[in-house]
Amino acid sequence: MNIIEVRNLCYAYEDDEPALDNVSLDIAAGKTTAVLGGNGAGKSTLFLNLNGVLTPKSGTMFFEGCQVTYGKKEMLELRRKIGIVFQDPDDQLFSASVTKDISFGLMKLGLTREDIQERVDRVVRQTGIGDLVSKPTHALSFGQKKRVAIAGVLVMQPSVIILDEPTAGLDPQGVSEILHLLQEIKDSMGITVIISTHEIDLVPLYCDDVIVLDKGRVVFSGTPAQLFAEPALLRAHNLRLPRINHLMNILHNKDHLAVDTSASTISTARASIKNLVSAKENI
């Protein structure tokens, strides 16, 4: 089932070139979708169109099967259901108090004080930021701020969470923590995850679907395996193969080894190489 369907969406900033040009795409519910594309491909613009902060110039969008209308009330509801975590947490966290920042948005839902506190406490546990809540925002590291920003979006119990380059600027430890958190958000909370990223290597590991944008157009939409089977398409849009997949291709094409060229992760590549070795030993 598709939770978001976009048909022929166009958007332009004032009178510039169109930033999104006739974009049509489907986002599957309960999956992780990666949006790839170079800088200026229109990823961030697309995200702001998806939750209604930017109103499309033309085209339609369906959310949970209903066509999105741009009335004030509907917009607030849409933004509650589709949360965005921005690339720079300093843009998103406006309060110097972590608890207060997370509670923003909940206050308007007509909940009691206890309910709000309860939901804040729960999301603090889920995102593992219990030891940060007593600190002021400006005392947190970049990665910690990122977690708080995610908590502030999760607390609204959205159906879809969009993360704009969630791993940019993090150390390896921070990257794997954030990715585990995203996996958990998807698996245990059933929230649909959309991420934009430049890190091709994590796409086969964490993403179920991929959309490639270039100059405001959708140039590919499918699974990671389908995408990585088309190296020419990747090159044409300034992307590359995952390193592991690249290695498997070289082993196959240059060294004529019968490895699985679709393997893109360490575990699949390992299985394929082990297979090959054990087949040779058995002869």
């Binding site: 509650r80 108090s97 608890t99 207060k100 948005g105 909940l106 308007k108 502030g152 609204m156």
Partner: peptide, 13 residues
């Protein structure tokens, strides 16, 4: 802020 449903006032816990 708009993405988070900002409507002109900062009600916070």
């Amino acid at each position: 802020l708009e993405s988070r449903g900002f409507e002109g006032n900062f009600e916070l816990l």
